[in-house]
Simulated scan of single mutants.
Amino acid sequence: MTYTVAIFDLDGTLVDTLQDLADTANQMLIEYGYPQHPTDKYRYFVGDGLSTLIERILPKGATSSTIVRCSERFLEIYGNCWRRKSCPYPGINAMLARLKNAGLRLAVLSNKPHRFTLEHTAHFFPPDTFDLVLGQRPEVEKKPNPQGLIEILSALDTPASTCIYIGDTAVDMQTGRAAGVFTIGVLWGFRDHQELAEHHADLIVKHPMEIVHHAVASA
């Protein structure tokens, strides 16, 4: 199989954002008088979009208006602190460079709000690394709905059979499978081998360069 496009999740796949996400959420919780959560718990709170994150960290029974208010405050805080501790995982930049040198086009699809997805990729990676970057937008269903992934395939004029989708959660594996692309689960992110295997990752890797070996060796 010849792969022409590699699409990546962002948080937990390209960039380790866990501490900044946890710090932001806990600051918001403190401000509104709610209990905080240990950082490690956020590995399972994040990944399904902002409103779901807020719903998970608030006490049970939170009203929709409370979720909206807390989501808005989260965004305000996060806008000032997302650069503090976040950084690309070791080996990510080298892996991306190798894929581009091999002729693959690269893209990002994230459930992070679109504004922050654009800001993260612009801040942490060289210009022109990605052909297309899409975060969560109100008019598009979030992952695991494959709408965003299909949009990228269409924009890059590539069939699903020549694309790989790389992520660190069950949601990512479900998204890729729903779009008919080859899925790669990564073990340096927020979730574990069991979750990726149970959701039928086509390949599970421990190091970024394994992605290159698969994508390029398959050409």
Rank of each mutant, 00 (worst) to 15 (best):
N80P: 02
G103P: 04
E141L: 13
P144S: 06
I67N: 10
W188P: 00
F74Q: 04
P138R: 13
A215G: 13
Y165F: 15
F125T: 02
L14E: 07
Q136T: 14
H114S: 02
A219M: 15
P208C: 06
M95W: 05
D128G: 04
S161L: 05
L196E: 02
I204K: 05
D11L: 02
V68G: 04
Q147C: 12
P127E: 09
P88I: 07
T129Y: 15
S161Y: 07
F8R: 01
S86G: 05
P90L: 07
W82V: 09
H214S: 08
T52H: 01
A25N: 08
D11Q: 03
S161N: 11
T175Q: 03
A62R: 10
I164Q: 05
P90Y: 05
I211R: 09
T52P: 00
V133I: 13
N145A: 13
F45T: 04
F190Y: 10
T39K: 13
L10Y: 01
H37T: 03
A62W: 15
L29W: 03
L106I: 09
L118S: 13
S51D: 11
K85Y: 12
T121C: 12
D202K: 12
D9A: 03
D131P: 00
L134V: 11
A219D: 13
I211L: 13
E31A: 15
A6Q: 11
I54M: 14
I166Y: 13
N111F: 15
K112V: 00
A97R: 10
S71H: 08
T4W: 06
I67K: 08
G103I: 07
E195R: 08
H200P: 03
T162P: 01
A6I: 07
L96Y: 02
